[in-house]
């Protein structure tokens, strides 16, 4: 990539690099047979980039997402997030990173079904140890930002798909994370709602949010400024495009 120094083991990332993976690999033991889902992915993402990760199923994009999202730890290689080497942190330290640095948006929304929008958005703040009144205020503000201030007391099954995904976005952003990590965010939405959601992402990007989005739809990937394609656990292409 132009403007990016090549990273070698023992280096530390440049200050404006949010995500840096170096020869990142992940093997799975599937009943005695080792599946090499990632075979050494080196990737650097700057602050305020909008990156789409593409690839056919089995290409390793989900594995990469899990590693970048600190839900999983690599078998080999390094992962630096905001200048902190997270590839060898403990479970609980990873939980803290997920809480503070990463906002997830899932294909299936993953909201708690019995909880109101407000409570769903509050969850990351609960685990961050924010006191209740402050928590409620911040969660309400996050819901306002996605245009759902009139749906705070609603439960997920009282909301449309698009509204649910907005609640999920509000929840992802409430702790002001360094990266917004979206895994097929439009997978369960119709095209009109998908376009609307892409509008929300574009706004967030304009406001300075770093976004990494996994998708297999080219027209969704087209919204990103940079597209990384994986194939067989390796980066196949990595190109910038006009948004």
């Amino acid at each position: 990539m132009p403007g990016l120094q090549e990273f070698r083991t023992g280096d530390t990332p440049q200050p404006d690099i949010v995500i840096l993976t170096h020869k990142l690999a992940r093997d799975y033991d599937m009943g005695g047979e080792v599946v090499r889902a990632l075979r050494g992915v080196s990737l650097q993402i700057r602050k305020n980039e909008y990156v789409a990760v593409m690839g056919p199923s089995g290409s390793g994009k989900s594995t990469l997402m899990n590693l970048v999202g600190c839900l999983d730890t690599p078998s080999a290689g390094e992962y630096w997030l905001n200048g902190l080497k997270v590839s060898d942190l403990s479970d609980d330290e990873l939980a803290r990173i997920r809480n503070k640095e990463i906002g997830f948006v899932f294909q299936t929304f993953n909201l708690l079904p019995r909880a109101t929008s407000l409570h769903n958005v509050e969850l990351p703040l609960i685990y961050a140890g924010v006191a209740a009144p402050d928590r409620r205020r911040r969660a309400a503000r996050a819901l306002e930002r996605v245009g759902l201030s009139d749906r705070m007391a609603h439960k997920p099954n009282e909301l449309s798909g698009g509204q649910r995904q907005r609640v999920a976005i509000a929840r992802a952003l409430v702790n002001e994370p360094s990266i917004l990590l979206a895994d097929e965010p439009t997978g369960n939405l119709d095209s009109a709602t998908s376009a609307e959601l892409m509008g929300v992402f574009a706004d967030l990007h304009r406001q300075g949010q770093t976004i990494v989005m996994v998708t297999h739809e080219h027209d969704i990937a087209a919204h990103a400024a940079r597209v990384v394609t994986l194939r067989d656990g390796l980066i196949a292409t990595d190109r910038r495009q006009a948004a």
Binding site: G69, D91, A95, R96, F104, L111, P124
Partner: peptide
Amino acid sequence: TREIGIRKSLGARRRD
């Protein structure tokens, strides 16, 4: 199980 997964993804530690 899914709820537990959601909570963990949002930063719940084991002890939480």
